[in-house]
Lab assay of single mutants.
Amino acid sequence: DEDELTGILKKLSLEKYQPIFEEQEVDMEAFLTLTDGDLKELGIKTDGSRQQILAAISELNAG
């Protein structure tokens, strides 16, 4: 699971946030449920980064 998540972050060039997800024990299943508020709480402060992550999440959820 973590590897898939790392792959997604790398694709977005946001792998610098990978340790945050690891630290908070966010797995792929949890990742797919994250909201903008969750990402802010995790410490992802950049709007653009959150938008990219949320776009990836909705794409993955759309299947």
Score class of each variant (00 low, 15 high):
1 D>K: 15
2 E>K: 13
2 E>L: 15
2 E>Q: 15
4 E>I: 15
5 L>D: 00
5 L>K: 00
5 L>N: 00
5 L>W: 04
6 T>V: 05
7 G>H: 15
7 G>K: 14
8 I>L: 15
8 I>V: 12
9 L>M: 08
9 L>K: 00
9 L>T: 00
10 K>A: 12
10 K>G: 03
10 K>T: 12
11 K>V: 02
11 K>H: 02
11 K>C: 01
12 L>H: 15
12 L>N: 05
12 L>A: 04
13 S>Y: 02
13 S>K: 11
13 S>W: 04
14 L>V: 02
14 L>I: 06
14 L>R: 00
15 E>Q: 13
15 E>H: 09
15 E>L: 09
16 K>E: 15
16 K>L: 05
16 K>D: 15
16 K>G: 10
16 K>T: 09
16 K>M: 11
17 Y>K: 04
17 Y>F: 12
17 Y>Q: 06
18 Q>I: 12
18 Q>C: 09
18 Q>M: 13
19 P>R: 10
19 P>H: 14
19 P>S: 11
19 P>V: 05
19 P>G: 10
20 I>W: 07
20 I>F: 05
20 I>Y: 07
21 F>C: 01
21 F>I: 02
21 F>G: 03
22 E>H: 05
23 E>G: 08
23 E>W: 00
23 E>L: 05
24 Q>R: 11
24 Q>G: 10
25 E>K: 15
26 V>M: 13
26 V>T: 04
26 V>Y: 06
26 V>G: 03
26 V>W: 05
27 D>A: 04
27 D>Q: 04
27 D>T: 13
27 D>P: 04
29 E>C: 06
30 A>R: 15
30 A>G: 11
30 A>S: 13
30 A>Q: 09
31 F>W: 04
31 F>M: 06
31 F>H: 02
31 F>K: 05
32 L>S: 09
33 T>S: 13
33 T>D: 10
34 L>I: 02
34 L>E: 03
34 L>K: 06
35 T>A: 05
35 T>M: 02
35 T>I: 01
35 T>R: 12
36 D>R: 01
36 D>E: 12
36 D>P: 04
36 D>S: 05
36 D>Y: 03
37 G>N: 11
37 G>V: 13
37 G>C: 07
37 G>D: 15
38 D>P: 02
38 D>A: 04
38 D>W: 00
38 D>G: 07
38 D>T: 05
40 K>E: 12
40 K>I: 11
40 K>S: 11
40 K>Y: 10
40 K>L: 13
40 K>T: 10
41 E>V: 08
41 E>M: 07
41 E>Q: 14
41 E>I: 04
41 E>A: 12
43 G>Q: 02
43 G>L: 02
43 G>K: 06
44 I>E: 02
44 I>K: 05
44 I>N: 02
44 I>S: 02
44 I>P: 01
45 K>Q: 09
45 K>L: 12
45 K>F: 09
45 K>P: 12
45 K>E: 14
46 T>M: 13
46 T>R: 07
46 T>F: 05
46 T>D: 15
47 D>T: 13
47 D>A: 12
47 D>H: 14
48 G>P: 11
48 G>D: 13
48 G>K: 10
49 S>G: 12
49 S>E: 15
49 S>C: 15
49 S>A: 15
49 S>L: 08
49 S>R: 08
49 S>H: 14
50 R>K: 02
50 R>Y: 00
50 R>S: 03
50 R>V: 04
51 Q>I: 05
51 Q>P: 03
52 Q>I: 08
52 Q>E: 15
52 Q>R: 12
52 Q>M: 06
53 I>Q: 01
54 L>A: 05
54 L>P: 06
55 A>C: 14
55 A>K: 15
55 A>H: 14
55 A>L: 09
55 A>F: 07
56 A>P: 05
57 I>C: 07
57 I>G: 05
57 I>M: 03
57 I>H: 07
57 I>L: 07
57 I>W: 01
58 S>W: 05
58 S>V: 06
58 S>Y: 04
58 S>D: 14
58 S>L: 06
59 E>F: 04
59 E>A: 13
59 E>D: 11
60 L>G: 06
60 L>V: 13
60 L>H: 12
61 N>Q: 10
61 N>H: 13
61 N>L: 06
61 N>Y: 05
61 N>I: 04
62 A>Y: 05
62 A>S: 11
63 G>A: 13
63 G>H: 08
